[in-house]
Structure formats: structure tokens, C-alpha cells
Nucleic acid binder design. Structure first.
Lengths: 164, 164
DNA sequence: TTTTGTTATGTTATAATATAACGTTATTTT
DNA sequence: AAAATAACGTTATATTATAACATAACAAAA
């Protein structure tokens, strides 16, 4: 698992080129091995589907894809796999639209900020530790210890704004 | 509608004392009048229910309460009222747990940060314009214009932390 | 290397959350 | 008063997620 993001803009690293997907899956396998967890065929397949999607996907979309692949699958099939991947920090869940996307930086646990375009659906994971640290400080002032930060910013991406 | 919060800690102003609820409903009515919108009996009743709840409530809980009050109600009844109240900034929706709570400061549109205790459910609206402004700046760096910020911090409140 | 325990998955059913569609009532405007 | 608009009633259904229990796969111990 690489430690640093090679992108200049600090946006999502999980672009769906097949090479990147394959690399990401390999890294996920290493990560699970190190944690003595089973990166089963199902989990790998679900992660691959999430990973190669251009945009965050819904659970039932993944379910359809699993079925199309020939596998017998029901809702618990996909939710259980997603739960595992969420716990391991390999995917994120967007609460505002009930979708899942591959984590850009599974190597170290992190809270992330998501920019969700309400027009085209394009979603970008931005990792700004500064923001999260500031939120943590503010929460502490209220005697509150953050376990999970859901920061989802919905609006218009530049592309959609310019094309009206 | 008062312009400034009287609390020292900048937490939620909507505590469920009946006096405060009545005051809040009056303010909501004034706000709707000024906007030439109808603060109907249903909308008032739903806002009252949200407002007097000690914690954020689910839509179907509100539905039950409407029915208990003798009114004929179905899911659209409550969702339509909630949609209106959301649009007017009188209530917020928490995406992480599908609940609704009265807005602490409906007088001016604002994005808020929520501290949600995963143990006792206690939820606090914190209004830190600094955080939201900073998020907006960060988003701008990505050519992104925020329409809505969902910032929900889940964790342990001091009370639950101290009692383990 | 069977036995045993644990983890993961299959399967059916159902819970929980939310909206579509269309008819009726109430309110506002003309 | 008539027409237009907005709100609400009602039925049905879509969407998202979990409960519960059986079977299979894997790991650890004997």
C-alpha cells in the first residue's frame, strides 16, 4: 500500500482504470493478510465492482451486478461484504445518497470530506486532515469524542456549473 | 425571531420545554407569514412534535404520533410536512440516522455541524460558521460550489464516556 | 486427520425509509 | 362565483437494510 498519493490535486486515487483497480485489489489483499482477515472471493468481487464504478454505487446496483456475474446473491450477500469493506476502511458510505465508493487511501485510517455534485453525481474524496482535526478540536470543546466524521458537501462541480 | 442565541455554549436552542416549543412555533409562524407561505395545522403539528422531542426523531415515529393524536395520516402526510419544514430551514435532517430535529436557528439560513452520540442518541447542533466557511474555501479550491453541507460527527458524548 | 469451533455465505422473510400517482379539499386569485 | 393553485387524503409501491436460521468453508486443536 503506497503511503503517499501521487496526484497533485489530492483528489480520489481510485480511478477506474483496470490497471488501478487491479493494483487496488492487490493492496487490499495485502492489507487483509496483515490483519489476519479473509479477503474472500465475494469481498474481492464486491470491492472490484465498487472500485471500477465511475461514481458511488448503491447496494442494489452491486447486487444486480453480482447476479449478472452468475453468482447467487441476495441483499445480505452484498451488505455483509460492504460492512466488511467499510470496517477495513476499503470503502466509504455516503449517508446523503446511500451509496458506496472505494476509499482513496485505505493505508491509514482517515476521515474524509466528500464533494458530491448533485447534477452529474460526480463525487470526489478530498483528504484534508486539517478540517477533520479542526472538527475534532471543536467537538472537544463540547466534551465530545468523535468516532466517525461524515462530511458530505453537496453542490455543483465546476463542469456542471459552467454548462449551466 | 431572535437574532442572537442566548446560550453561552452555542449549542442547540431548541430544548423541549413547552414554553420554548410554543415560542418556537410562534416564530415559525411569523417566518412563514413573512415568506407568504402557509403554516398549516399539519405543518405546525409536525413541527411541534419534532420540536418537543428530546432527540432527533424518525419520520415513522412522527407518523405514529400524528395517528395517536387522532389525525388520519399516511407516510406522505409526514414526509410532505417535513419537506416543507426542511425547505424553510425549520428542521434539519440527519442523513446518518434518518432522523429529523428542529433547527436551532431558523432566522438565518445556515449550515450546521451536528454532534451525535452513538450511545444515548443525544444530538447537539453546533453553529460554527468558521468550519463551514473553511469547508467552502476548500471546496472552491476544487472548483466546487457547496449548496448543502452535511457535517455529522458521531461519537461519544462526555456523559456516556464517563459512565463508560 | 478427524474433530471441533469459528467465520463466511446462502436463503427466506421482513423491517425501515421514502416516493409515485391520483383524487379531493381548502385556499387564493381573478 | 369561477378558476387556478396549493395542500392534503389515500392507495400502492419503490428503495434501502436487517433478522433469523441453515449450510458451507476454513482454521485450530486433539
Amino acid at each position: 500500500m503506497t503511503e503517499h498519493c501521487s496526484h497533485s490535486d489530492h483528489a480520489s486515487c481510485t480511478l477506474p482504470s483496470s490497471e488501478q483497480v487491479a493494483n487496488f485489489l492487490d493492496q487490499a489483499e495485502v492489507l487483509c493478510d496483515r490483519r489476519n482477515l479473509r479477503f474472500t472471493k465475494l469481498r474481492k468481487q464486491v470491492l472490484a465492482l465498487v472500485c471500477k464504478a465511475e461514481q458511488p454505487v448503491g447496494a442494489y446496483h452491486l447486487l444486480d451486478e453480482l447476479r449478472e456475474s452468475g453468482r447467487s446473491a441476495a441483499p445480505p450477500t452484498v451488505y455483509r461484504a460492504l460492512d466488511f469493506l467499510l470496517e477495513q476502511g476499503l470503502v466509504h458510505r455516503l449517508a446523503t445518497n446511500n451509496t458506496y465508493l472505494a476509499c482513496a487511501h485505505p493505508q491509514h485510517p482517515h476521515a474524509a470530506v466528500f464533494l458530491v455534485c448533485s447534477v452529474c453525481g460526480h463525487t470526489q474524496e478530498v483528504h484534508t486532515e486539517g478540517i477533520i482535526a479542526e472538527l475534532r478540536r471543536r467537538a472537544e470543546q463540547f466534551d465530545f469524542a468523535i468516532k466517525h466524521a461524515s462530511v458530505e458537501l453537496t453542490g455543483w462541480c465546476g463542469r456542471c456549473r459552467r454548462s449551466q
